[in-house]
Write a protein that binds this DNA or RNA. Sequence first.
DNA 1: CTGTTAGCGCATTCAC
DNA 2: GTGAATGCGCTAACAG
Lengths: 356, 356
Amino acid sequence: MSVTLADVAARAGVSAATVSRVLNGNYPVAGATRLRVLRAVEELEYVVNGPASALAAATSDLVGVLVNDIADPFFGIMAGAVQSEMGSEGGVTSGAGPQKLAVVCNTGGSPDRELNYLTLLQRQRAAAVVLTGGAVEDGGHTEALATRLRRLDAAGTQVVLCGRPPLGAGEAGPHPLTVTFDNRGGARRLTEHLLSLGHRSLGYLAGPAARTTTRHRLEGHRAALEAAGLAGDADRLTVHGAYDRASGYDGALELLRREPALTAILAANDTVALGVCAALRDRGLRIPQDISVTGFDDLPFAVDAMPALTTVRLPLHQAGARAGRLALGREDGPPGGVATYRGDLMVRDSTSPPAR
Amino acid sequence: MSVTLADVAARAGVSAATVSRVLNGNYPVAGATRLRVLRAVEELEYVVNGPASALAAATSDLVGVLVNDIADPFFGIMAGAVQSEMGSEGGVTSGAGPQKLAVVCNTGGSPDRELNYLTLLQRQRAAAVVLTGGAVEDGGHTEALATRLRRLDAAGTQVVLCGRPPLGAGEAGPHPLTVTFDNRGGARRLTEHLLSLGHRSLGYLAGPAARTTTRHRLEGHRAALEAAGLAGDADRLTVHGAYDRASGYDGALELLRREPALTAILAANDTVALGVCAALRDRGLRIPQDISVTGFDDLPFAVDAMPALTTVRLPLHQAGARAGRLALGREDGPPGGVATYRGDLMVRDSTSPPAR
DNA sequence: CTGTTAGCGCATTCAC
DNA sequence: GTGAATGCGCTAACAG
């Protein structure tokens, strides 16, 4: 079969323990032997057996990153940022320190698959797990999730939430480290921007119901509306849908059906906003002259939309990188365990005062 | 510490071997004992120790998926498709069959990180590895990569190439299973479309040099040009850049500088095309009246670009899913080990006959 | 500084 | 159908 530690040891004329020591570099070894071992490793093309190593050391170098939709850059950017914090960046050639293997798992937004992956990661005895994006708000699932996270924690796996609201301290110990976004504030600023422009009839295209991100953004929107004394119509002018283009397209048409005099539509995120724009164009409406549109997240393509999207920029990369560092214990947790990033309003060409 | 097989065995009043058998479900066990064991597992919240299991069985349930850029939907879609083929889709609650853990690793387009991940995956004794996207064409790297893949293969890891050209049989055994796209043909059809519209001065914005995808698309483009007797200017009207929006923006300006009379620009992919559109707009040029633009891949946002992008649709999901099945041995390899998908020309609004 | 000795937790022969 | 051994390859105490 495969080359083992013992083979390397034999070839180098040392004991297995010594080989292990030079490979892990966590113990003093004479320079000469060290070189001899390294050479043997090269010659034999030896590659450590991860499972065996993990078993013996009771720790693995796997770090799991859960995302709702791997085809969505929102998650891709965060996941990439997390990964960028792993490893020593240098070559791995041989004893280049404890390289972590950051792996991203795509839940597709399904609570079951989320729990599923968590179990698989626990089975692998992952060193850390980073959960990104909004959580599903369902009594049963919230509890099941909390249970899984508690077990993970008990098993010594560092759990970090990224772009997801804090969990609230359970009975057993404190909540996981959290890096989150001020979705409420961002949505509120976006709505205030529209109101200040003079809009009075605003439609809101919310994300899927029972999702924290959806709820928070909606709450921020409503708060601004209420402050302006415009909350009356809010329910009627809110439509829920998925975080995708099709929902934006259909949702925009539905909103227009409900209220033809709409002068602005706020989309749950940039992708949805793209769908909204498409629908409006197909209806012969000009943006922003006839109707203003806003997104959320400021993904790279937002600036390329036609017209360029007014949106809220979330520091996705920054948050992901921070989460990665927290996961590895390379950085101390923020006070209270929760770091909140606010989003910046990016005013571009898709919003303007209403025609009238 | 953690709950082990032995704990479960004790609680169920059976031997560890029996517990192992019911959990793996690959051996006859009496219904009654089976239930007793399952209950004990539940009560103790037992989760298999992956490393130990992998060590004993000499196989792991990890499947690695390497991507060049996780924030790019091109890769996200393929990676998601691969993952969708893992696992029995059902609950994992207990002995729900051999769930594979598909994990995606982001190389960021760096050859070193690619090799690095391959080593880490080999260390984990991954069951399979799927390499997606174009490969870097550099003598040294190609060889290093081939070596890694050969080792992986020797270690029993199934290697599958997805959206990447076949490797060519090495000395040691056949090339890996491959699912690839006909980039040459797609680019050729795109160029022919433009030529048939009457364009005679075409600029080409190629991807990074020394990448298979870049080269193949460029070759297809050149082939069409040559067939039309227009190859003379080709070199001058080709600019290389990254697969991102900024390159499209800068590249378009550079092309215009080289040849102000350009009537069409072919971008390396949709993302680049977006940048091209932005640059043209900023220069006051109308698309397609003043200048036609094409993309490649037909990512979801292509249809939302303004104007909707003429491009080549690649069956990314289909290819990824196929690769996933091949990786798990759920499907026989295609004859010759290589399956090629062709791309469909999607003619939309960003191309039209030249003004003159 | 280096070798020796024990397991880590599980899958898998064998017996029964 | 079930239990009792054995070893997977490695790390972590211990000695020396």
